[in-house]
Design a protein around this nucleic acid. Sequence first.
RNA 1: GAGGUUGUAGCUCAGUUGGUUAGAGCGUCGGAUUGUGGUUCCGAAGGUCGCGGGUUCGAGACCCGUCUUCCUCCCCA
Length: 458
Amino acid sequence: MAQKPAIPKGTRDFLPSEVAKRTYLFDTIKRVFKRYGFAPIETPSFELSSTLLGKYGEEGDRLIFRILNSGEKMRKADLEALAQDNLPRFANSLAEKALRYDLTVPFARFVVQHQNELQFPFKRYQIQPVWRADRPQHGRYQEFFQCDADVVGSDSLLHEVEFIQIFDEVLTALNLPGFDIQINNRKILTGIAEVCDVAQQIVELTVAIDKLDKIGEEGVFKELKEKGFSDLTLQKIQPLFELTGSNQEKIKHLRTFLASSEIGLKGLDELQYVFDRIAQLGLAKGTLNFDVTLARGLNYYTGAIFEVKAQGVKMGSICGGGRYDDLTALFGLKNLSGVGISFGADRIYDVLTELQLFPSDLDKSLDILIANFEPETELAHLQLLQKLRALGLAAELYPSSTKLQKQLKYANDRKARYVILVGEEERQQGKLTLKDMESGLQQQLSQAELLTKFEPLA
RNA sequence: GAGGUUGUAGCUCAGUUGGUUAGAGCGUCGGAUUGUGGUUCCGAAGGUCGCGGGUUCGAGACCCGUCUUCCUCCCCA
């Protein structure tokens, strides 16, 4: 019986017109990455479970797609763990491999494994799909692409500056009219926790204040209270929510607030450097904002934290990133500082679609169609096609000599710019008719004239 | 992982308190036009009503399960 076809939830098919848009998006990002000296690498779609598990917290482990052992390996199932109701251990014994959850952890594994073959500081970019067993929602898929660029082996703040320039350059090239690059520094958050005497609960603290723009000041206080923070702490944090004014004014206020925290002040110094450099260099369309409440969930960030939001659309962050001082330590290589960013290609795609910013001629897959009148001229047409294709033009001969009406409709649907007509009339005169599908105008040309006409277009 | 929501033609959606043969627009195909597309006119094809079970004389509609969609939370890009 014919079965209704379907694809798993949170996955998508891409039609030619969609692939054309995605290619445009990826190519724009790649072009900028390359200009800044990043080289592409690729890693496998799946890794050993042990490489991935435990790197993203409890929540992350739950969202990792596992690959069931096959054949004889099934016998490795730990039935004892099942009997003891230890489901995580049982699951691990069933699946030794898992689909890549992000590009950063596999990259850390890659760096450690190939450390002797790489030049440091090592700058790589990587555009590949990742998989998450998350519940799909607007702008959230189970299979999606990440476009990451990272530098490892350098603690220079130069990279932070360059990444901000990359955000600006890519998103400007994609014609986004406006976007906010939010920046914060993990050291400032650590300093805040120190000043408030809650250094141990920094994760709970930052996760809560990260939600400020979503649930408001009251919501944050409520959540902090539920997490067991004292009224005194809440009172100390309060001034943070009232930080207003320019980036410089915010930094100034925080210097007072964090006066007793060495690490907090270091974070402010780092931030100040980045702001100074960007002010001197300038940005095209982006604006750089200091946002103390920006935390991002990931625990491994230690310095700058970035997040980018597009203006004029209701969409979560479209880019993110930050500095992580010891990511490769997870795999045994210490003291290697890294900093990186990620473009959320699928979300950017949705934003560009919503704002109608994709160039209109992207899905043009055919420049010239030769209409098919009679089988006898087939060879001559194929020879003409060779010449047109040698010029770099996408050209094809309609495969059968059906009604001209149908062939023109096909050319129209394919968005072909020109149609070449060679019927009995033209053949007798040794000419061909070139029809411009946009203007509808036709002209009679010899083959040599035709090729001369198209030469500059190639 | 928790709660809610959706599913009818290729697409977007109608379908009354359960009652003959499930409709429309768009798209597709054919024709009006045997060498001229986009517009127009005429016609046609296309549906196990997500899937499985139940209630009923009778289910697209009601009930249960399941998958899917979208949303809120969690988390994230």
